[in-house]
């Protein structure tokens, strides 16, 4: 009986946590949409804000819904490598693009 009760408690805790995550994600999404229409002078700032909001949402989903906040080391190390190589792919491509000399002149 006690066992069943504690399982029920765990479930309720999950419900509460899920509800919070969903509400925060929804709020951040709406803020993000707001930022897209806000009268900001700097387009870079706007993009930065939007991506930061998206990153925060992603953190919530990955951290809480995918339990990444309490995961095993084997998975952390795997993801660390993945993130690193992802950054290398994106970063070096962008760098290569930026470092390409204009055709016809130096």
């Amino acid at each position: 009986m006690k066992e069943a009760l504690s399982k029920e408690d765990v479930y309720r805790a999950a419900v509460v946590r899920c509800r919070t995550v969903l509400l925060v994600v929804a709020a951040v999404t709406l803020c993000m949409v707001g930022a897209a229409y806000a009268p900001l002078a700097e387009p870079g700032l706007r993009t930065g804000l939007i991506l930061a909001a998206a990153g925060f949402n992603a953190f919530l989903v990955a951290g809480h819904l995918m339990h990444l906040l309490q995961e095993r080391n084997v998975i952390y190390s795997l993801l660390a490598f993945t993130v690193l190589f992802f950054a290398a792919l994106m970063g070096l491509c962008i760098w290569a693009h930026g470092d390409t000399p204009a055709p016809g002149g130096v």
Binding site: K7, E8, V10, Y11, A14, C18, L22, A26, N57, L65
Partner: peptide, 22 residues
């Protein structure tokens, strides 16, 4: 976006329900 976020939450709850044997 909201729909998919909600579905992610219900998925987690489905798993939590399994954990609670419901």
């Amino acid at each position: 976006t909201l729909l998919l976020a909600a579905s992610a939450v219900t998925t987690l709850l489905a798993w939590a329900a399994c954990k609670a044997r419901r």
